[in-house]
C-alpha cells in the first residue's frame, strides 16, 4: 500500500510531517556524512540572529525526570555565517530549510528575515519564545502587542512562508495564536521549551548558568502539556499548527497529528538518538500502512470531536 505523507504549510510543501526542531540539530554537519534530509519534512536551523551571539556562560544542560533543562542562550554564528557556510551544504542534502530567526529588537528580526532569499530558505520560523535570553526571545512571545509587531515586521520583510513559534508560558495562548494569524503568519509552531529550573542542593544555588537560574524544559515530560496546547490552538486558528514538545517516538507524532497538528518537530530526542526523526518518519508511515490510512490528512485532527 502506498501512503501519501505530503503536507502543505502555506506555500511550503513537505514530503512528510516530521521536522527537526530548531537548536537540536544545528545544520546537521556534525554527522560528518551525507544525510538523507530529503526523507524529512523540513529541518529548522539553529536560531539565527543578525550578529553572532555567544550564548550562556556556565551550566547549560541538566537532566530532569523524563526530560531536560537547557540554557544555551541561542549561541549562534549569525545570519551571514549561515549564508556563507551552511546554505550550500543544506541544499546539497536536499533539505527543506526552515530558518529559525531570533532578535533582540523588532528591527533585528526583520533584518534577518530580509537577508533570506528563496535560495537560502524555504520558510522562516520566528522564535519569539526562547526562555534563555535576557533580551528578545520570550519577551516578545509573552507580550501580545510585541508579538503582533514582530510578526508584522517579519511578514513585511519576506515573501517566504512565515511560521511563528509561540511561547508556552502565556495566559491565553489562543490570543497569541490569533494575533500571529491576523498579522500574516502562515503557520504556528506550538510551542517552545517551558521555563523551569533545578537547584543544586549541595551548593545551594540554581543549576543553570543563566542570570535567572532558569532553563527551558523539554522532553517527554512536556508532551502532555504541549499536546493540549496544540489541541486548543488548532481550534482557535485556521492556519496549520506544528506540534513541538517531547516527540520521541512515532506514537508521539501520531498523537500530535490526531490532536490537530499538521506536522511535528522532533527536538531533544535527537540528543539521545541522532536518527530519531528518521525513525519517527518511518514509524509513522508504517502506522499508516497498518491502519489502512492512505493520506496523512486522514490523521490530522482525527481525535477531535
Amino acid at each position: 500500500m502506498t501512503v501519501d505523507t505530503q503536507i502543505s504549510i502555506g506555500n511550503l510543501r513537505c514530503k512528510n510531517p516530521v521536522w527537526v526542531a530548531a537548536g537540536t540539530f544545528l545544520y546537521g554537519r556534525e554527522y560528518g556524512r551525507r544525510l538523507p534530509l530529503e526523507e524529512l519534512g523540513a529541518i529548522c536551523t539553529k536560531g539565527t540572529s543578525l550578529e553572532p551571539w555567544d550564548g550562556v556562560q556556565g551550566i547549560r544542560i541538566a537532566e530532569t525526570p523524563a526530560g531536560m533543562l537547557n540554557a544555551i542562550g541561542l549561541q549562534n554564528w549569525g545570519i551571514d555565517a549561515y549564508l556563507e557556510r551552511n546554505v550550500a551544504w543544506l541544499r546539497e542534502q536536499n533539505a527543506t530549510i526552515v530558518v529559525n530567526i531570533v532578535g533582540k529588537t523588532v528591527d533585528e528580526y526583520a533584518a534577518v528575515a530580509a537577508k533570506l532569499s528563496p535560495r537560502d530558505a524555504d520558510a522562516i520560523e520566528v522564535n519569539i519564545s526562547c526562555p534563555n535570553v535576557s533580551e528578545g526571545g520570550v519577551f516578545f512571545g509573552t507580550d501580545l502587542r510585541m508579538t503582533e509587531k514582530v510578526v508584522d515586521a517579519v511578514r513585511k520583510a519576506t515573501s517566504l512562508p512565515v511560521i511563528v513559534k509561540l511561547a508556552p508560558n502565556t495566559h491565553g495562548l489562543a490570543e497569541f495564536a490569533k494575533a500571529a494569524e491576523a498579522y500574516g503568519a502562515d503557520a504556528l509552531s506550538v510551542a517552545n521549551c517551558i521555563p523551569g529550573m533545578a537547584i543544586d542542593i549541595r551548593r545551594r544555588k540554581a543549576v543553570m548558568g543563566t542570570p535567572a537560574g532558569s532553563g527551558g524544559l523539554s522532553g517527554p515530560a512536556v508532551k502532555p502539556i504541549i499536546l493540549k496546547m496544540v489541541w486548543d490552538v488548532t481550534a482557535a486558528v485556521r492556519i496549520p499548527v506544528i506540534g513541538v514538545g517531547g516527540v520521541v517516538s512515532w506514537q508521539d507524532a501520531v498523537e500530535y497529528l490526531m490532536a490537530g497538528a499538521s506536522a511535528v518537530q522532533v527536538g531533544s530526542a535527537l540528543f539521545r538518538n541522532p536518527n530519531a526523526p528518521w525513525d519517527v518518519a518511518q514509524g509513522l508511515e508504517q502506522f499508516m500502512r497498518d491502519e489502512g490510512v492512505s493520506s496523512i490528512g486522514e490523521l490530522i485532527g482525527a481525535a477531535r470531536p
Binding site: T24, F25, L26, E30, Y31, G55, V56, Q57, I59, R60, I61, A62, M68, N70, I72, Q75, S268, L270, F271, R272, P274
Partner: peptide, 15 residues
C-alpha cells in the same frame, strides 16, 4: 554536562 555528545546541543561549552 552534555546532552548529545556529538556537537549539536552546544550544552558542554567551555570558554
Amino acid at each position: 554536562a552534555m546532552a548529545c555528545g556529538y556537537g549539536i546541543c552546544l550544552g558542554c561549552a567551555v570558554e
